[in-house]
Computed example of a mutant assay.
Amino acid sequence: MEIRQLENFIVVCKELHFTRAAEKLGISQPTLSQQIRALEDELDVPLFDRVGKKIRMTQAGALLLEHSIQMLRQLQNAQDSIAEFRSGQRGTLSIGALPSDMDYRITSLLVQFHAEFPKVKLKVVSSTDVLSQVLDNEVDIGIALTSAPDERLVQLPLSREEYVLVVSSKHEWADRESIPIQDLRRVQTVMFPEGFTGRDLIDNWSRKHGFTVETMMETASVTSIIRLVRANIGGTLIPYPLIQAMGDQEMRCIPIENDPPSRSFEIVYRADRFLGSPAQAFIRQTIDFFKNEPPVV
């Protein structure tokens, strides 16, 4: 049983189609089929049921897939560890983060990391599903909304953030020092579309208080939301640290009284993933970064 065989086996399991898998691997379909048959002969058990052109994994195939992924991950961990030892902390570190927070908040964190590890290539990937990126090994570390405990992950809490009402300095409520929850019934807003994490959080929170936030416009871009609010189309509800990071003097932040909506962040990585000193330093810097962000005033 060879590493290449297992790598090709995993691709067949994902595609469940020999021709597509062979195309993805850049080898011929007969060569791939021969490799899988060799595995089956060695293990003395069928790994796939073949029904015409369709295939599906057998129970033995599912077991081999689980162990193959673990073996290849351990091999990658060993290679990463040795590469760090040989290169003097070179290499690549990939980070998954929410789009708006990546755009406006963590630039200074990236600058700080580069100053300490100038030879490490840092890759930041924007995603609304950071946990899946981490679990699928698409990124090394994720900065994600707090989720339920998962034994596959190490989950370190970062911060809890309250949302505020953000309006233009020209808005009729711009001089308010705070706003009762029920007054939000009367404000027209610019928000993310339904189905976006931030919008769902606000909708669930407002329903708990017996109303629905009225939206005048919806857009998937936080930059567009801010421009529309600045143009006094309506207000919006955004986490306070995010609007603070934008540093826009034409915007006003109005705290919500008593029970404002909030979200919590965590930094996550796979429990079975090797993390070198650059990755460990990034985690420490990220915890310090979120700890030192300004509270709502």
Rank of each mutant, 00 (worst) to 15 (best):
A97V: 14
L122K: 09
M217K: 09
E138C: 12
R199D: 04
P149L: 06
I179D: 01
S147D: 04
P239F: 01
V139C: 13
L39E: 08
Q74D: 10
L156P: 02
G210E: 14
T219P: 07
S94V: 11
K123A: 11
E218L: 07
L184S: 01
E2A: 04
P255V: 12
V268Q: 07
K121V: 08
S81D: 13
I141R: 01
I27T: 03
L65Q: 11
T236S: 15
I95G: 01
E257C: 10
L98N: 03
H114P: 02
P278D: 13
R90I: 02
R56D: 09
L16A: 10
L72E: 00
G142A: 06
V297A: 11
W205T: 07
L201W: 01
P46M: 07
I181M: 11
H114K: 15
G52I: 05
I233C: 12
M246I: 15
I10A: 07
P180V: 07
L228S: 15
D183A: 08
G26W: 03
R230L: 08
L135F: 03
T219F: 12
A279P: 03
S168C: 08
E66D: 15
P260Y: 05
F85P: 00
T189Q: 10
A38V: 04
V222Y: 02
V268K: 00
R185Y: 06
M57L: 15
E250H: 08
Q249D: 11
S178D: 08
R207P: 00
A148T: 11
S277M: 11
K121T: 12
R263A: 08
V11S: 04
A279H: 07
A97T: 05
Q155F: 02
V213T: 08
S33M: 14
V190C: 06
T286W: 07
K24H: 04
S132K: 10
G52H: 05
S68V: 00
L75E: 10
T146K: 13
I256Y: 01
R4Q: 15
D103V: 09
V11Q: 10
V45M: 05
N292R: 09
I179Q: 01
L43M: 15
Q29H: 09
T223D: 09
G52D: 06
A83V: 06
S262V: 13
K119I: 01
D80H: 02
V134P: 01
L64R: 02
